[in-house]
């Protein structure tokens, strides 16, 4: 989610954009049916799909789409009738497939805004877009001299 606003500072206007990752409260991950749960012991919420094994295919979680659309309707977004997932590529140990499935050109939701109360009265924070994507896993560095450890429980958790 990215949000923009404007405040005048003498002859300058400050424009602040925020990129917000919100975990969706689904029971399972975005593209496989491993549990979406925090705090489990390492690599206990993983399967061939979220481990990026060969031969596996993503299957989209309908509940994640429903929750995304619901958030979008509450914020007055336009819900796109056609919504496309794309692959964002980089190599990193916490990214099992070598790409993150995200949305780029055609996100699920565009426009809308959030009304907030401030000291200066009510303001509207405009929303540029909201899209669905999968989270990466977790790398741990503490306490090991020349090695890093990887826990993939979080890999594939749905983010809005």
């Amino acid at each position: 989610m990215s949000v923009a606003s404007g405040v005048r500072f003498g002859e300058w206007e400050v424009v602040v954009g925020l990129e917000v990752h919100t975990q969706l409260l689904t029971k399972t991950k975005l593209f496989c049916r491993c549990e979406n749960r925090f705090g489990a012991s390492p690599n206990t919420l993983v399967c061939p799909v979220c481990l990026g094994h060969p031969g596996t295919l993503p299957v989209l979680n309908g509940e994640a789409v429903r929750l995304g659309v619901r958030a979008g309707l509450a914020a007055g977004c336009r819900v796109s009738p056609v919504s496309v997932f794309e692959r964002k590529h980089y190599f990193y140990p916490d990214l099992p497939k070598g790409y993150q499935i995200s949305q780029y050109a055609t996100p699920l939701l565009t426009g809308g805004g959030l009304r907030i109360r401030t000291g200066a009265g009510e303001r509207t924070i405009r929303i540029h877009r909201m899209h669905l994507e999968e989270d990466a896993g977790k790398n741990l560095h503490a306490g090991i001299p020349d090695r890093s450890h990887v826990d993939l429980n979080r890999a594939g958790v749905p983010l809005l």
């Binding site: 029971k27 390492p42 206990t44 993983v46 399967c47 020349d146 890093s148 826990d151």
Partner: peptide
């Protein structure tokens, strides 16, 4: 939800591991 793999199965083919973690050269 569908049951996940046990960590031993999930890590069985790992070229390097430490306990229940995959292990790689320091990031």
């Amino acid at each position: 939800p569908v049951p996940s793999l046990s960590p031993d199965v999930a890590l069985a083919g790992a070229p390097d591991r430490s306990g229940s973690f995959f292990q790689v050269p320091r990031i």
